[in-house]
Nucleic acid binder design. Structure first.
Lengths: 358, 358
DNA sequence: TTGAAAGCGATACCAG
DNA sequence: CTGGTATCGCTTTCAA
C-alpha cells in the first residue's frame, strides 16, 4: 500500500504501489495497462503479477482528470419504478454499455430543484450527455430552464437529450426524441369512433402537461373529423396515478355522466378505471369500453387485456443514445419523432347503448 | 476559458478561469465555493459573479482526487425494468441522495462476466458501496466470486451489500439484507392448506436459484406440518418469465395433472398462469386458486386481485443503504432479515373439488 | 524500450 | 483574510 499521505480511500493500491512492487516506473505500468504501447514481455509480466497481487484497479477519477477516462451519461427520470421510463432508461443503458460508456440513473421526483441539482451534478461529472425522460409542464419558465441546461452542457462539450417531451426553440443545442403522442391518440379515438362510440370519456392527464395536451389534441381532432361535437364535460383530469383512475371513474358514474368508452392517459390509469368500473358492477367491454396509452407489460395482464397505444420506449432510449454517440452534423437529425401504433386487445366492443351504462 | 492545454472537456471553465476573472487566487475561489472558511464580502461577491458569468461548476473528478468529493454507490441489478428490484433501487437511491450521495444503477443482464466488470468499474469509481440485487444461483463458484468482491471492496474501504440473497461465510466482509423467503412461502402454503387445498401446484423458479429453493422449502415444511405428502409431480419449473407461466400451466392441464391451487414464484408468473387458466376456460378462484409472491403493484391490478406474499423491497433498499452510511460496529447487525407477510386479496377460495378441475 | 516529469482541476496547508 | 504551492493518481510527452 501507498506510504504517502493517505487519501480518501484508505488502503487503495495506486499505480505507484504497482510500479514499486514490479520494480518499474509508473509510466511502464500505465503503458502495460492501457496496452497501447509496446513493453517488453519481461516487464509486462512483472507488472501484471503485481497488479494481481495488489488487486489493483485504476482510479477512474485520476483517469478522467488526465483526459482519458470513460464517458458517462446521466439519465434523469421522475421515478425509477415507472415502467414506461424504466424502459427508456434500459434502452439508453444498453446502448451506452455496448460502447463502454457508463450510465448514472437518478430520480428527480418531479422536483425542478432536484432536477437542476442533478443536471449540475452531471456537469460536474463531465457527463457526455444528460437525458431527461418523460413529459413535463410546458411553461415559459420551463423552456428557459431547459435552454440554460442545454447551453451549459453544450459549452462543456456535452449534450442535453430530451426524451418524450417536445422540442425547444431551434437555436437551443439539444437532441429531442419524441413519440407521436397526438397521432396515437388520434388513431385510438378513431378506433373507438369506428366502433360506434360517440361519448368517449377522456382522462388525458393534468392540464398543461405536454403528453396530456398532445393526447387531448389527437382526441379532439378525431372527433372533429367524424363530426362528433367535443363535450368538455367528458374531459376528466385525474393525475396519472391509479387510485385516481378509480376515483375519477367513480365520480363520473355518480355524476350520472353518459359515456360508452373511457380513454385513459396511461395504462396505469386504465387499470384503476377497470377496477372502479368493476366495483360499480359494470362489465368491460360489454358495458363500457376502456383503452389506455403506453403499452407497458401490465396492459396485457389486465382483464380484459387492454387495447392501448404502443409507444416504443426502449427503442427511444436506444435511438437517443445512438444519436449522442454517433453525432450527426445535420441539426435536423437531432429531432426525431418515433411512431406509435394501436394495439388492439379485448377491452373495446362496438357500442350498444349510445347513451352509456349509467 | 482556460488558456492551458485543453483537456478532455473542451471549453469547460476551471477554477483558474474563475480566479482570473475575479482577480483573486484559486485558493480564494475554492474557499468561497466550499464556504468553510471566512472570505471578505468584497471578494466573495466578485467570485460569485465570475462563477455565474462563467457558468462554472466544480470538476467532480478533481474533487474526488483531492480527497473530498461526493460518495457514490453502485447498484447492480439484472434488469432495470423488473418491478421488484426497481423498488429496491429506489429505496437505495432515496436514502443515498438524502445524504448527498450519488447512485449509479447498472444492469448485469444476469451475466457473471458483466457483473465482474461492473464491480470493478465501481471499484475504479471509488464507490463507497456496491449493492448486488436479487437472487442468484448459489454455487461454490459464486460464493468464491462474492468473497473476492467483498474483500477487494473491503480493502479499499468500500462495502459489498447483498440484497435478497443469502449471506456468505461469516468471515466475509459483506452486508446482507434478506427477506424471509421461506417463511413467506410457508405462510402462503399454510393459507392454501387451511382453505382445504391439498394438491397445490408450485412453480418455485429455477433449480438451485436461492429464492426458488427458499420458497420450495417453505412449501414443503407447511405440507409436512399439515400431514400432506409432498408430490414431486406438483413442482413445475418454468423460469420467472410470464409467457412461461402461461405455457407451464397449459402443459400441466394437458398432462392431466390434478391440482386445486397454483403457487407461483412471482406475481408475474402468476399473471401468466391466470391467462393460461382463463384460456383453458377455467375460473379463478372458483375452479382454481392462484397465488403469487412479491406483491408488486401489478398484483392488485390483476383479475382477480392476487393474493400474494408482500416483500418490503423498497424498505430493504433503504435499510441497506442506512447500514452502509451509518456503519455498525457489531458484525451481527450486518445481516438483517426483513419480514414478509401475506396479502390476502381475491384469488383464493376454499377448495370444492379436491381433485382439481381437469 | 524505459524513465522522469509536466500537467489535469481542486483542496488545504503554510506563510505573510 | 489572502495567496502560493504541494498533492491526489494517472497519462503522456520528452529524453535517454
Amino acid at each position: 500500500m501507498s506510504k504517502r499521505k493517505p487519501s480518501g480511500q484508505p488502503g487503495r493500491a495506486t499505480i505507484r504501489d504497482v510500479a514499486a512492487r514490479a520494480g518499474v516506473s509508473v509510466a511502464t505500468v500505465s503503458r502495460v495497462l492501457s496496452s497501447n504501447y509496446h513493453v517488453s514481455e519481461e516487464l509486462r509480466g512483472r507488472v501484471m503479477t503485481a497488479v494481481r497481487e495488489l488487486d489493483y484497479v485504476t482510479n477512474a477519477h485520476a483517469r478522467s482528470l488526465s483526459g482519458t477516462g470513460r464517458n458517462i451519461v446521466g439519465i434523469l427520470l421522475d421515478d425509477m419504478t415507472g415502467a414506461a421510463f424504466a424502459h427508456v432508461a434500459r434502452g439508453v443503458e444498453e446502448e451506452a454499455s455496448a460502447r463502454g460508456w457508463l450510465s448514472m440513473v437518478c430520480a428527480t421526483n418531479s422536483d425542478p430543484e432536484r432536477e437542476l441539482e442533478l443536471v449540475n451534478l452531471m456537469r460536474q461529472q463531465g457527463a457526455a450527455a444528460v437525458f431527461l425522460l418523460g413529459g413535463t409542464y410546458d411553461l415559459d419558465e420551463y423552456r428557459l430552464r431547459m435552454a440554460r441546461f442545454a447551453r451549459s452542457l453544450d459549452a462543456a462539450g456535452s449534450r442535453l437529450v430530451l426524451c418524450g417531451r417536445p422540442p425547444l426553440d431551434d437555436d437551443v443545442p439539444a437532441t429531442v426524441i419524441e413519440y407521436d403522442n397526438e397521432r396515437g391518440a388520434y388513431a385510438m379515438t378513431g378506433h373507438l369512433l369506428s366502433s360506434g362510440h360517440r361519448r368517449i370519456l377522456i382522462m388525458p392527464g393534468p392540464e398543461g402537461f405536454t403528453t396530456a395536451e398532445g393526447r387531448l389534441a389527437g382526441y379532439r381532432q378525431a372527433l372533429a373529423e367524424h363530426g362528433v361535437p367535443f363535450d368538455p364535460e367528458l374531459v376528466m383530469r385525474p393525475t396519472f396515478v391509479d387510485t385516481v383512475g378509480r376515483h375519477a371513474i367513480r365520480k363520473a358514474l355518480q355524476d350520472g355522466l353518459r359515456f360508452t368508452a373511457v380513454f385513459c392517459a396511461t395504462d396505469i390509469v386504465a387499470a384503476g378505471v377497470l377496477d372502479g368500473l368493476r366495483e360499480a358492477g359494470l362489465s368491460v367491454p360489454e358495458d363500457v369500453s376502456v383503452v389506455g396509452f403506453d403499452d407497458i407489460p401490465l396492459a396485457s395482464y389486465l382483464w380484459p387485456p387492454l387495447t392501448t397505444v404502443h409507444v416504443p420506449y426502449e427503442e427511444m432510449g436506444r435511438v437517443a443514445m445512438r444519436l449522442v454517440a454517433d453525432p450527426r452534423r445535420d441539426a435536423a437529425e437531432h429531432h426525431v419523432v418515433m411512431g406509435t401504433h394501436l394495439v388492439v386487445r379485448r377491452s373495446v366492443l362496438p357500442v350498444r347503448r349510445p347513451d352509456g351504462p349509467a
